[in-house]
């Protein structure tokens, strides 16, 4: 309630500033009700084509904060987290154990829909933005990605164990990454998030989501989609192998026969 009262007092200033930054929406608001902050993100392109020699890059996502409370903005109490989530796929996590001296896969857990990649950009360290409970509720952050075991009655401790292993393996491969401070405000209500796209970024539909927090509480969310496609010969080969397996195999055989034959002509003149 206290926070509410302060907002009323500052509403006028907010509206005045809105002329310069926010656009006309602030004027449309009722005088008594302070305009609610909303977040928008825009991707400059809907399709990102990566070449075969892609070795990782930064993806910049721009966004705007509508109707910000200038006082809170000045105090830096608005926080934004942007997530780029890769396509969802089933994943099996296996654990090796020693049996008669040999390291053998003995146990496994299948998770039904795991984002292949998960890149996060945030304004500051996660513990300074909001509390663990909010992250959990929003399924936000690498540690809070919801991992659902594929089986009907899964053992919770096993799900926990393999879920942890999955997050750690994904982080080590760079597919899951978090960047603190890589989301910055440019001007008063525009922001720029710089996300890491790893070299092995998966193709498919990625979902970008932005979460807005004010004074540690979640207030708005926006999302957009991005297609990542691979371009070049290698990508065509991959598609051919997966769509026309048989003809691809025949091609591979013909290539081998021709190579063997030419090799003989070139090298052996007997």
């Amino acid at each position: 309630m206290k926070r509410c009262a302060r907002k009323h007092a500052l509403a006028v200033i907010g509206m005045l500033l809105a002329v310069a930054v926010g656009g006309p929406s602030a004027f449309a608001q009722d005088q008594g009700e302070p305009p609610r902050e909303t977040i928008n993100i825009g991707l400059s392109t809907e399709v990102v084509a990566i070449t075969p020699d892609f070795s990782g890059a930064d993806l910049t996502i721009f966004g705007s904060l509508e109707n910000p409370d200038p006082q809170i903005l000045r105090q830096g109490r608005y926080d934004i987290i942007v997530v780029l989530e890769g396509p969802l796929r089933p994943v099996v996590v296996r654990r090796k154990d020693r049996i008669f001296g040999l390291w053998i896969n003995v146990d496994s857990e299948t998770f039904s829909s795991v984002p292949v990649s998960y890149s996060v950009a945030m304004t500051r360290a996660p513990q300074d933005i909001t509390d663990a409970k909010s992250y959990k509720q929003l399924s936000l952050g690498i540690d809070n990605i919801h991992l659902r075991p594929a089986g009907e009655n899964a053992d919770p401790s096993k799900t926990e164990e393999f879920g942890l292993a999955l997050r750690s393996l994904k982080q080590r491969s760079g597919l899951y990454n978090e960047r603190v401070g890589s989301l910055t405000f440019i001007g008063s209500n525009l922001f720029r998030a710089s996300l890491a796209l790893p070299a092995n970024v998966p193709v498919g539909t990625h979902r970008a989501r932005a979460f807005l927090f004010r004074n540690g509480s979640f207030i708005d969310e926006a999302s957009d989609q991005l297609m990542i496609v691979k371009s070049g010969t290698e990508a065509s080969i991959y598609r051919a192998a997966n769509t026309y397996g048989f003809f691809y195999g025949v091609f591979a055989v013909i290539l081998a026969v021709i190579t063997g034959w030419i090799g003989r002509i070139v090298f052996k003149r007997d």
Partner: peptide, 17 residues
């Protein structure tokens, strides 16, 4: 390689549902 402890006992593979 079969007898040496692997760098990570856990591994990921595409799942089949």
């Amino acid at each position: 390689d079969l007898f040496v402890r692997p760098a990570d006992v856990y591994s990921l593979a595409p799942g089949v549902l």
